[in-house]
Design a protein around this nucleic acid. Structure first.
Length: 503
RNA sequence: GCCGCCAUCGUCUAGCCCGGUCUAGGACACUGCGUUCUCAGCGCAGGAACACGGGUUCGAAUCCCGUUGGCGGUACCA
């Protein structure tokens, strides 16, 4: 980046819905690029389509960005206030700015009023398709005489303003990720810049804003490549120097079409709500289209920011592979301290009504069992390496927080062991445990295993039913760690209940 | 139709710019084995790719051209 000026980049979503994974990746790359070079990361809301803007959309995007940990330096605040001196950062609040600029273009002859109706335009398009011609505006109003034009305007006829693309030559721009891209001017559409409702289109608004906000690099999705020459022509018409462009590869559905909510859950906030860690989501999306060129997969945001290099971003699209996100989430789950892990997991247990805050900790309201924060941490540790995300925790740990789990007595029988022998073993085990003083996982394991040997049982004959008795499940954490978390009293009660089931 | 972008294991990718060190490396997923009361985890092993065709060169995954394929754009949407 041969830029002497300070790097300024922006993420410019339109508030037509929630933030999706593709948007997060675009925001992230802008963020990483800004951080890498000590630049400024700006959020700008592009709400120039009155029909598609959804109420609360901008707030949702801002909230999701925050939750993901991508803080912006300039932009609108949640409350609608501004941060930074280049505002407003919401395009619908900049309408007069666009009108002033488009006026200059019209006087200079770089843009013109067009009075064609949608029906007329559609007819032209159909003829062009039939004739295998490119479907661009036929420039009818561009050739209109000044008096005719003035008359129609005076008449109050609805119109739009179009960009007058040069008839000859070609327009080339250099893309940081893909090198040079050239378009022939005669194939570029005289696109609408100002709609008949007075709102600007994306082309006008983004060019004006990017210039006014001193944006140095426009980092956006690949779907913008075909409109970039229009933008370059616009910059020149204004007498401005265009910023650098970097078009990011598309994110794809499993069938390799452009990522869509029809085929996948693409709402970032849904993943966050389900208990995917922001760290994992960031790590995952960062690696979709770029990687730090090391045989390593797990990174934190600041590490990514340190090595991010825009020219190294891939030019081909990337399929979003949710399996890998799950794996990465597991990796990040393990990186958290025991305390931090518990802190993040607790809301999920509370939401499932497994625990409720009470003096001295938490209580399970069905059983009345009290849990200290230490108890909670121990319980949570049981499933840390077994779940894919925090949202799986309530179900995975229900046997700890809830009452004695219900299960079929047959489940207690290990392989083809005699029910009577299992019953006898469990009864004796309960008696043995009754006498134990040191109720820790390691002590339990050492003593019980020694006891099994002494009594001449097979390990599985005792451990399997013991575990089932404590958890009610055929797949679960081990019997000793569960017993340690459950405590002596609850462990013995569950063992005795199992003996009853067998008798 | 027209315009443009892209092309390494099923998927994410390293390597490509600066041809030989590539019998193409890593990760996810998958399979097997081990650890083991179960599941998960962990450890080890395995299968799995340079789209095709021409050039250039002593030598091409790497450079050039073409073909094919995929995708994107083609709106008073962004």
């Amino acid at each position: 980046m041969a830029t002497d000026q300070k790097i300024r980049v922006r993420f410019a979503p339109s508030p037509t819905g929630f933030l999706h994974i593709g948007g997060l990746r675009t925001a992230l790359y802008n963020y990483l690029f800004a951080r890498r070079w000590g630049g400024t990361f700006i959020l700008r809301i592009e709400d120039t389509d009155r029909t598609r803007t959804v109420p609360g959309g901008a707030e949702g995007i801002i909230r999701t960005l925050r939750r993901a940990g991508l803080d912006y330096d300039e932009g609108p605040d949640v409350e609608g206030q501004e941060r930074g001196k280049y505002g407003p950062y919401v395009q619908s609040k900049r309408l007069t700015i666009y009108r002033e600029h488009i006026y200059k273009l019209v006087t200079a002859g770089a843009a013109y009023q067009c009075f064609c109706s949608p029906e007329e335009l559609e007819t032209v398009r159909q003829i062009q398709i039939a004739a295998k011609q490119p479907t661009i505006y036929n420039k009818k109003c561009r050739e209109m005489s000044s008096p005719d034009r003035a008359a129609l305007i005076k008449d109050g006829r609805p119109h739009v303003i179009r960009l007058a693309i040069p008839e000859e030559g070609s327009t080339t721009f250099s893309d940081i990720i893909r090198k040079e891209i050239t378009f022939e001017n005669r194939l570029i559409d005289d696109s609408v810049l100002l709609k008949s409702d007075g709102y600007p289109t994306y082309h006008l608004a983004s060019v004006v804003d990017d210039h006014l906000m001193n944006i140095t690099q426009v980092i956006r999705g690949e779907e913008w490549i075909p409109s970039t020459p229009k933008h370059v022509i616009l910059y020149r018409a204004f007498g401005w120097t265009p910023p650098e462009f970097a078009h990011l590869p598309l994110l794809l559905n499993p069938d390799r079409s452009k990522l869509s909510k029809r085929q996948m859950d693409v709402a970032v906030e849904n993943y966050l709500d389900r208990g995917y860690l922001p760290e994992a989501l960031i790590n995952f999306t960062a690696l979709l289209g770029w990687n730090p060129q090391a045989d390593r997969e797990v990174y934190e945001l600041d590490e990514l920011a340190r090595s991010f290099n825009l020219p190294d971003v891939n030019s081909s699209g990337a399929v979003v592979n949710l399996e890998k996100l799950g794996w990465l989430n597991g990796q990040h789950l393990r990186r958290l301290s025991k305390e931090e892990y518990a802190r993040r997991a607790v809301p999920y247990l509370e939401a499932a009504s497994l625990i409720t805050p009470c003096p001295g900790g938490w209580v399970n309201e069905q059983s009345g069992t009290i849990f200290s924060s230490q108890d909670l941490q121990n319980a949570l540790s049981l499933e840390r390496e077994r779940v894919r995300n925090l949202g799986d925790l309530p179900e995975a740990l229900s046997f700890i927080f809830g009452a004695v789990p219900e299960y079929d007595g047959d489940l207690l029988i290990w392989k083809d062991a005699e029910p009577a022998r299992i019953m006898k073993g469990l009864g004796e085990l309960a008696e043995f445990l009754e006498l134990m003083r040191d109720w820790t996982e390691s002590a339990l394991e050492a003593r019980v295993k020694a006891w099994i040997d002494e009594q001449g049982y097979d390990t599985g004959q005792i451990l399997w039913p013991m575990r089932v008795a404590l958890t009610g499940r055929k797949a679960s954490p081990g019997p000793f760690e569960v017993a340690a978390v459950l405590g002596k009293e609850r462990t013995l009660a569950r063992l005795r209940k199992a003996v009853e089931k067998l008798s």
